[in-house]
Write a protein that binds this DNA or RNA. Structure first.
Length: 592
RNA sequence: GACUUGGUAGCUCAGCUGGAUAGAGCAACUGCCUUCUAAGCAGUAGGUCACAGGUUCGAAUCCUGUCCAGGUCACCA
């Protein structure tokens, strides 16, 4: 919003001259006015009244500083309400010309090399609704960062080893009966997940039996036959036992083939995939490096730890006394590997809020080890997706909302809507399906993105995701209508639009002014790692366009310039919204 | 216990670097398609901004305390 900055500067300069007090553009609280339809900008100047500057002085200052950019000023209490003239509005329009360029040419263009980790699936269960929030947040942030001129590398880590997958393996060992996802005709990752649910139930039952037999609840689970077997599997796996490794690979293969399918639906891919099974033994080198640098402490029992009490954290163990690594050690090694692979200067983790402490610790450790990217480690943490009663979804108990299921149900809803729309009567089944997919994905993405990341999302699995109202579908629809106008009307040569009749409608003024703040919102989004900022901006943009659409005739406009101006605005809207959708990682639909 | 995040309409959420009458969507009700896509637009109704103090010209917004809910504080991942 460059014109606003210019206006602030002009006001500050004029005011300084008038009052002999020095003012900066930052001191001028000038913003778009959303309270009154009759004004465009409001300068909230209560603070200045204290300097014994009168309202009249402020009034004159505005008139002098902004000159023919304003139509009128009204001073009420400490508010200076400003109505822009045609000249002022067209100055705002000029901003659109600068913004509506391609990525990397925006005013604050950055040039960072960013590594973005997200998703982080466990290979013992299919993706659930929580992963969707993770993925969509990450993708949106990724696109906002790219749009801002950064180089972004998207990677993930598969948690493909450990006791959890061993439990699924035990389940297959016990209940599998040689069946396969193919023979059962279910999605392979779901088969693995089902086994996990089944084994968890059995484990619970066995635990209960032991508790009734007098075993303390703390130890009961550990002593169940299933846990004993799972631990045995884990040991054998670590020893490289061929049979167990083969079973492990079979289970993981099932997971990956289903997982890849879901990724395809979501239209995402990772530039590089890391596997816990390949790095879980690393970390000893890092531990030694830390010891050498005097950052880590060797304890009497042989374990290695770091004292972070000065940073307000605790003493954290880095390496067990038996020399094996921990979660934190693995993440240290992973960061090191990634630095070797990408030489990034910024590292962003998109991981749930329950791991805030972990990433805080990780950042401090890497800072102490002097990794160059360490100061630029960020954790985009987000709240859980919970049931309507506030309860947690648990994969273990099979209550998790499956990602594929939720997508399918919204696609179905969108399909019915598309099919019942008269305009779509001529469309083929395939085309209707494409539309349904686009609308469904857009709506699910938007549902996840519009809510502030730190807030938990309440989702009732019994209700489907809405595609009407404040949704992704709504946004796509407004864009489809705008494009339809452009297709049916020829865009004339852009002329001078500093003509006052063109700005009589408040809907026109509001749309223009909102569009000028795109860059500001983009900058805020990436600075705060908060895609909801961009999502809400886009939603409001669509709303303003719809209002404009409703009241501003284009084809039947009585004046030539009015028609051209309308078309020009629509074309700006299309460009702007396409940028917004790119930043949200939502694909526009061609028809709806 | 300590730290941390939230509490705004029946439901789901905006608004929070203090400003004018607290905004959307869903659900309910009423209008608007021979007119560029009605997946839309316009309207009605719905509020003690958790509670109590404080700061000031002014508080949903800032401060303090209380209550409620989530999360974390492992030689688990």
């Amino acid at each position: 919003m460059f014109f606003l900055t210019e206006f602030k500067q002009a006001i500050a300069t004029t005011l300084s001259q008038k009052t002999q007090i020095e003012f900066q553009a930052l001191d001028i609280s000038l913003n778009t006015s959303d309270k009154f339809q009759t004004f465009d900008l409001t300068w909230t100047a209560f603070a200045l009244l204290k300097h014994k500057i009168t309202l009249e002085t402020l009034n004159e200052t505005v008139k002098e500083a902004l000159g023919d950019s304003i139509d009128s000023v009204e001073a009420i209490k400490g508010f200076l309400n400003i109505k822009l003239s045609a000249k002022g509005m067209s100055r705002a329009l000029d901003d659109l010309e600068t913004i509506s360029l391609t990525e990397k040419s925006i005013s604050f263009s950055q040039n960072r090399k960013i590594l973005l980790e997200y998703c982080g699936p466990n290979t013992n269960k299919p993706l659930h609704i929580g992963h969707l929030r993770n993925i969509f947040l990450a993708r949106s942030l990724s696109h906002c960062l790219r749009f801002s001129g950064n180089e972004v590398h998207e990677v993930t880590i598969f948690n493909d080893r450990g006791i959890a997958i061993c439990k699924s393996m035990v389940a297959y060992h016990l209940f599998g009966n040689g069946q396969t996802p193919e023979s059962l005709d279910i999605k392979p990752d779901k088969y693995v997940g089902d086994l996990y649910v089944k084994i968890s139930q059995t484990l619970k039952e066995q635990t209960q039996v032991l508790i009734q037999q007098g075993v303390s609840p703390k130890e009961a689970e550990d002593q169940t036959p299933i846990m004993k077997l799972a631990r045995e599997f884990l040991l054998k796996w670590e020893d490289g036992d061929k049979v167990i490794k083969a079973l492990w690979e079979q289970m993981n293969h099932w997971f990956y083939s289903g997982f890849d399918k879901t990724l395809e639906t979501l239209e995402i891919d990772f530039e590089r995939k890391y596997y816990e099974s390949q790095i879980y033994l690393q970390g000893k080198d890092i531990a030694q490096e830390g010891l050498n640098k005097g950052v880590f402490d060797q304890n009497e029992d042989g374990s290695i730890s770091i004292d972070l009490t000065e940073e307000g954290l605790d003493i954290k163990t880095i390496l067990r006394k038996d020399g094996t690594s921990l979660y934190i050690t693995q993440d240290m090694a992973l960061a090191q590997n990634r630095f070797e692979d990408f030489a990034m200067d910024t590292l962003i983790y998109v991981v749930g809020e329950e791991q805030e402490y972990h990433f805080k610790v990780l950042k401090h450790i890497l800072l102490k080890l002097d990794y160059p990217f360490a100061p630029n480690i960020y954790h985009l943490s987000y709240g859980l997706v919970v049931g309507s009663d506030g309860s947690k979804f648990k994969s273990r108990e099979g209550t998790a909302v499956d990602a594929d299921d939720i997508i399918d149900s919204v696609v179905e809803q969108a399909y019915l809507q598309a099919k019942s729309t008269e305009k779509n009567a001529s469309l083929s089944e395939n085309e209707l399906r494409t539309i349904a997919n686009q609308v469904a994905l857009a709506s699910i993405k938007f549902m996840m993105l519009k809510v502030y990341a730190k807030k938990k999302i309440v989702f009732d699995p019994k209700e489907t995701v809405d595609i009407h109202g404040d949704t992704g579908g709504f946004i796509l629809y407004s864009l489809v209508r705008a494009k339809s106008i452009l297709a049916k009307n020829e865009l004339a040569v852009i002329t001078d639009f500093a003509v006052s009749e063109l700005y009589e409608l408040s809907e026109v003024r509001a749309l223009v002014l909102h569009m000028t703040s795109f860059e500001e919102i983009l900058f805020k989004t990436i600075s705060e790692h908060n895609p909801s900022e961009m999502a809400l901006y886009s939603l409001n943009l669509a709303k303003l366009f719809n209002k404009f659409y409703q009241v501003y005739p284009i084809r039947d406009n009585s004046s030539e310039i009015g028609r051209n101006f309308g078309l020009y605005l629509v074309s700006r809207y299309v460009l702007m919204m396409e940028k917004c959708l790119y930043c949200l990682d939502i694909k526009p639909a061609e028809r709806m």
